Simulated scan of single mutants.
Amino acid sequence: MAVISVRIPDKLKAKMKEYDINWSEEIRAFIVLRINEEEKRRTIEMMHELLAGGTPAKEGTAKRYVREDRDSN
């Protein structure tokens, strides 16, 4: 497992000691959450770029596909 260091103000460190919280675990969980959010943002951005380059479907295409699907059953 890798180790990272973070500098925080002395007052913040003193406040942290007042609470019975596993700060390492809290920080790890936050980093995982933040990375997941960033990955989602980048995926959405990439999808927007891919869709922006495509040709729009003709009017009524979705309706036709739904009708074909319903009629096939």
Score class of each variant (00 low, 15 high):
D71A: 05
V6I: 15
M16H: 00
R28A: 02
L12P: 00
K58H: 11
N36Q: 13
P9N: 06
K11R: 08
V6K: 09
P9W: 03
S72D: 09
W23E: 03
R42E: 14
G60L: 01
E45F: 01
N36K: 08
M1D: 06
K17Y: 07
P56W: 00
T61M: 02
I31G: 02
R41F: 07
R28M: 02
V6A: 08
K63R: 14
V32R: 13
T61F: 03
E25D: 11
F30T: 05
R67V: 14
Y19F: 11
S24A: 08
Y19V: 01
E68L: 13
A2W: 05
E26R: 15
I35Q: 12
A14T: 09
R7M: 09
I27R: 02
K11I: 10
M46R: 14
G60M: 01
L51I: 12
F30E: 07
T43P: 00
E25C: 03
E38W: 00
I44N: 07
R34F: 10
P56G: 15
E59M: 07
I21Y: 10
N22C: 07
K17F: 04
T55P: 01
N73F: 02
G60W: 01
K40G: 00
K40C: 01
Y65C: 00
A62I: 12
V32C: 04
E39W: 01
R67N: 12
L50Y: 11
E45D: 15
Y19Q: 10
K40A: 12
T55C: 03
K13N: 03
A14P: 01
V3R: 10
Y19D: 03
V66T: 08
I4K: 10
A2Y: 12
E18R: 13
E45C: 02
A29M: 06
L12N: 05
E37K: 05
A29Y: 06
R41P: 00
G53L: 06
I35F: 03
A52K: 15
N36F: 02
K63V: 08
T43E: 15
K15S: 12
W23C: 04
R67Q: 14
H48I: 08
E59Y: 11
E45S: 14
K11N: 09
R70V: 11
T43A: 13
V6E: 03
G53S: 09
R64D: 14
G60Q: 01
K63F: 07
L50R: 12
M46P: 01
E38V: 03
K11C: 05
D20M: 06
K17Q: 13
Y19P: 00
P56K: 05
R7T: 10
D69R: 14
K63A: 14
E45Y: 02
P9Y: 07
